[in-house]
Amino acid sequence: MAEVFVKNEKVYKAKKIAFNIATYVFLAAIAIAVLIPFYWMLLTSLKTEELMLRIPPILFLKPEDWEISNYYKLFEVVQSGPRRGEPLFPFFDYMRNTIIVSLVTTAGTLITTVLSAFAFARLNFKGRDIMFAVLIGTMMIPGEIFVLTNFLTINSLGWYDIMDQTFMDVLFAMTLPFMTSVFYIFYLRQTFKQIPNELYYAAKVDGTTDFQYLLKIMIPVALPTIVTITILNSMGAWNAYIWPAIITTKDEFRLVSNGLRGAFTDTSTGRTDFGQQMASATLVTLPLLILFFTFRKQIMRGVSRSGIKG
């Protein structure tokens, strides 16, 4: 009897080990699949044209074969065509534009969402719940619908001037439509609501105004949430593609995503320089990855929150 038991125990253990190994193999395979595009991007960016065109492709590159010329070629000035005199990929210009746009948008978003979230979490007013429901409802509407009219609005405000568009025009056009976010209001409201009411009444007794209470108590308590919102919102400008392309009249005003596609295909031969293309993709991806590894916890917490229904 005891022997049978021990035997079963052994079988059970062996099964468990086998299952664990299978789990690790499965997860490792997925992890490799996730990493391969990054690897291929970097690998291709480090290949000379001659190595790039080898068939079958070279899968590994020894460090001494790494060729960084693709990177500095990006900054070389174009000799002919409509973009003559400009760098092939004006990464630093696009980067500067992107950073400015993301800072301004984020500052605006924080102001509007903190104030609104405070009203929804703390104040009693007529129609509060209905208004909140309507706002949540707008999250389901495809943003493409807004683009059509927003372009016309930007135009009638004089910010889409084909002859003489300035960077300030572009800055207004790129930031104003995105200076608020229903999801962040929702997220902040949840955080604000967790602050005990007693604190608010005590502050009231001490003669603190609502606005002082918001600044001195609520914002500091909700700081982790605010940091998360700041980071997530800043990343938005990095991925913006269609809106910056629509409302800019000059290449130099665009954001990082816009410059990527098309710049490395020779229009006369139709041939694409993959090395340079991947070098530019690497340059655009790198700042995002650095941001992610610096603020990993905040980013993942904020994103997982957006999957939970309210």
């Binding site: 990095w238 990082v256 993709a281 991806t285 941001l291």
Partner: peptide
């Protein structure tokens, strides 16, 4: 952390990498 990486990338940049893949 590894599985989350695709979330923090630029769809155009990574799309181009997929085009080469």
């Amino acid at each position: 952390t590894i599985f989350f990486l695709p979330y923090v990338t630029n769809a155009i940049a990574v799309g181009m990498a997929f085009a080469v893949l």
